[in-house]
């Protein structure tokens, strides 16, 4: 079977800085694939390139065999590539449930769904029920009515994950889901992401190595805009080049 995502010789520079030098990578269907690397290695740039937040200077992105290199972000979401952000992106002034409902509404792509101007959105019970399900999935059921701005940081991260899941992606891109979280919140999020195994293909950028080695099926190491190694957690753990470049003595 073809990989879900094929990245071919992707390049992107900012002025004189090559954030992505020459990245080729395949994401297999159903796997949780972690992308690790030191700060400034170009991990977030790569997520931007895959999600459509940035466009590459060279190279090609094939999603399910289809060239999406030039597609806009919202077109890619429609095809099934959805992402979370390193800095939480939610709608602070509305209730948590309403945040997710907007995601469900986006996913209903029958013609003009979001151009309906007369009928109250609150009349769509199915849409609201679906949003409630996703909130429950990330453990926020009792916060449905809470303004997103009043949620804790960890809850906001979970809310963003619920919104991203509610677009029903076929490829989920998570940019540092544990960023800024305390130990308890991290543990909850890690379990949540681990629970996606088997039902969801995930590309995950994360600095927390314990988490990465717990949830990932495969790991790729990005150093200075290059993929230096790809393999199972066991293989990456003992890879001498990786150890040298990134992991440090304590893991080795």
């Amino acid at each position: 079977m073809t990989p879900l995502l094929t990245i071919r010789n992707l390049k992107r520079h900012f002025g004189g800085l090559w954030a992505t030098r020459d990245v080729s990578l395949e994401i297999q269907r159903g796997e949780i694939h972690a992308l690790i690397g030191p700060n400034g290695a170009g991990k977030t740039t790569l997520i931007h390139l895959i999600s459509g937040g940035l466009f590459p200077d060279e190279g090609q992105l094939l999603f399910d065999g289809r060239d999406v290199t030039k597609k806009t972000m919202h077109d890619r979401v429609a095809l099934g590539i959805a992402r979370s952000f390193q800095i939480t992106q939610i709608f602070p002034k509305i209730a948590a449930l309403e945040n997710v409902r907007l995601a469900v509404q986006a996913q209903q792509r029958d013609w003009g769904s979001s151009l309906r101007m007369w009928r109250p959105a609150s009349a769509d019970f199915l849409m609201i029920e679906e949003a409630e399900d996703w909130l429950g999935r990330v453990g926020l059921a009792e916060h449905a009515g809470t303004h997103a701005a009043d949620l804790s940081h960890g809850e906001q991260r979970a809310l963003e994950l619920a919104m991203t899941l509610a677009t029903r992606p076929r490829l989920l891109l998570l940019d540092e889901p544990l960023a800024g979280m305390g130990p308890e919140e991290s543990e909850r999020m890690t379990q949540l992401i681990a629970s996606l195994r088997g039902e969801q293909t995930v590309l995950l950028v994360e600095h927390d190595m314990d988490m990465v080695f717990r949830v990932a099926d495969r790991i790729s190491v990005l150093v200075a805009g290059h993929i230096t190694a790809t393999g199972t957690p066991e293989a990456i753990r003992v890879d001498p080049a990786v150890k040298r470049a990134y992991l440090g003595e304590d893991i080795a």
Binding site: S51, H74, A82, I90, F91, Q105, R119, A121, D124
Partner: peptide
């Protein structure tokens, strides 16, 4: 109160998130 109105409200609050939801 319609879907379109909610979508506009979302855009006013966070365009990046709306785009990333597929709007």
């Amino acid at each position: 109160h319609s879907r379109y109105g909610h979508a506009l409200a979302g855009i006013r609050q966070n365009e990046t998130r709306m785009e990333a939801l597929g709007y």
